[in-house]
Design a binder for these strands. Structure first.
Lengths: 327, 327
DNA sequence: TTGTAAGCGTTATCAC
DNA sequence: GTGATAACGCTTACAA
């Protein structure tokens, strides 16, 4: 690959002038500029980004640490984040943590070694004390002291779910989620507000008894058998709000296998947007997190980091009720 | 961040010696080594990877260009590729092309500008002539002249599908796929062998008439209404093989809405592995591409590139029949 | 308006 | 065993 030197030599100018042309910085005589551009084209010269990163101590690469890219919501979020970054000319590195803290840490090292210069963090591990504030870090959904975060409006999501189930005529409610969502957990997560809002809203409307099923945080895909048993145990429940569409799908299947009709006997809602394209049977009523909006908020913060402008401590993006066939 | 210079100064040695210690190259007296390691720890020094890339003209970053990360199969493949690369200490950049050729080209530029030093390409666009053989490029599923590629055993997949449907008692067959899969297309894809094998195998078993429905390549998620109408039109068909689980899911839903029972009236198979965790209703019988195996094959080729060892022109990885509730 | 040269943080060569 | 020093390809003072 030809370098700036080759261009300078062939055009009979100094390398600084070539640099000025490719960066459109400083003054260059029109004539010189054209000559240089011609040579650049002839040689097919492209500036070496590694060398640029070297002088600027920045590479405009963002790392996204997330549990995995298999979960439908994560795949969508990743897609939106990458698309939004692309517009602004940042590049995205994916880092599957599989929820393992040691993998997360090894990825976080990339900030110290200048492999990436900013990082989006989506984790349930309590790694706050390991996050150096001097780096450009953004958290999604989890609240870490001193780290800006982005989340969709989980409280509103829980509220909408409660109101919708009430409107559909449900009288006896259940909430199903994984236990990291509890408000008294080590990791403070925005997600816990789904349950909170759901229960508070029901209370306000006169429904004081809500069955809460929480289970150990899993792989986002499978839910334990006990949960399914619990669902069948409470035969009078007719309105169920699940922490995700994946959980809702399982719950619906469990109910139907047991001879219950959804939504006639039981109304079931999920969370994330119901965009499950492999949705055999019914489409799920859900709360859409609108990942394109959270992605935009994340990229906004990243830009503020790079521009050294003021960063809001957090950004909450709107959610939307999506009515499917399960309520 | 402290540099190698700071370490050298504080340890009272030259920078070359420090370099030898961090790279475990060349001879360093045990005593010196220990002193340097102590200083490294004290300073929290980490070598700057940008500078390293500078001298080595390599950054061990791999780009993965793919249509999107929303499709379940892509999300899985991405996960497996990233995991396999992680083991070997490579980093992965994701590049959603949304099937747009200009985005693909802009990502391919990253090879020229040294932002990444190898690339996995998953595309339906005919960009063979734009791919410079001097770069480390690997294609998934598509055959481009002179570019090594990896694919799962699509022929075997089609064959297994035919045999399974026959075994389940189907007599009248249909294939549903998108038209880029046709063998006479501009882009030569391994995927076309699914159809080929399906039809050839049926013929061998005495079934000579297969209805083939092909439609313009879509976004991998929606299938056109016409396809669904076609499905209902051929009332005597009782064995359908679809190009993906996503398509199969739609077909099944269409059939069931029309009052047909799957699998009693019609047996339907998909492709990709049936791991649709949002699978309400029935689980789909499918051909598992075993993305962990293709991922491994891809990473193998990448390693050969870096080591400058001989690269096989292609790698075909095994598939597996997964029996669900739709056949 | 342009060119020279220092510097970014490493690695690698070559004396000592 | 070890330490200067040149390179890697660029940006950016500073001088001309």
């Amino acid at each position: 690959m030809s370098s700036i030197k080759d261009v300078a030599f062939k055009a009979g100018v100094g390398i600084a002038t070539v640099s000025r042309v490719i960066n459109q910085s400083g003054y260059v005589k029109q004539e010189t500029k054209e000559r240089i551009e011609k040579v650049i084209k002839e040689l097919g010269f492209k500036p070496n980004e590694i060398a640029r990163s070297m002088t600027q101590q920045k590479n405009h690469i963002v790392a996204f640490i997330l549990p995995n890219t298999k979960h439908l919501f994560f795949g969508e979020l990743l897609y939106e984040v990458e698309s939004a970054l692309y517009e602004k000319n940042y590049k995205l590195m994916v880092c599957n943590s599989s929820e393992r803290i040691e993998k997360e840490l090894s990825y976080i090292e990339m900030l110290k070694t200048n492999r990436v210069d900013s990082m989006i963090l989506l984790t349930n591990n309590d790694i706050a004390h390991l996050l150096d504030k001097k780096y450009r870090i953004i958290s999604f959904d989890r609240i870490f002291e001193g780290i800006p975060y982005v989340a969709s409006d989980n409280y509103e999501g829980g509220r909408l779910a409660a109101l919708h189930l009430i409107e559909r005529g449900a009288k006896k409610f259940m909430f199903i989620g994984d236990d990291q969502q509890g408000s008294d957990n080590i990791v403070n997560t925005e997600v816990s507000k789904r349950r909170l809002a759901f229960i508070e809203t029901l209370k306000q409307k006169g429904f004081h008894h809500v069955i809460e099923i929480e289970y150990p945080l899993g792989n986002y895909i499978d839910i334990p058998d006990e949960v399914q048993q619990q669902v069948l145990l409470h035969k009078d429940v007719d309105g169920i709000f699940c922490i995700s569409d994946a959980v809702a799908a399982r719950v619906i299947k469990t109910l139907e296998l047991a001879g219950k009709h959804v939504p006639k006997d039981v109304k079931v809602m999920g969370y994330d947007g119901g965009r499950s394209f492999l949705n055999l049977g019914k489409t799920i009523t859900s709360i859409d997190q609108q990942p394109h909006l959270t992605a935009k908020a994340i990229v906004d913060i990243i830009e503020h980091y790079y521009k050294n402008t003021r960063i809001e401590p957090f950004q909450i993006t709107p959610v939307k009720l999506v009515i499917g066939e399960t309520t």
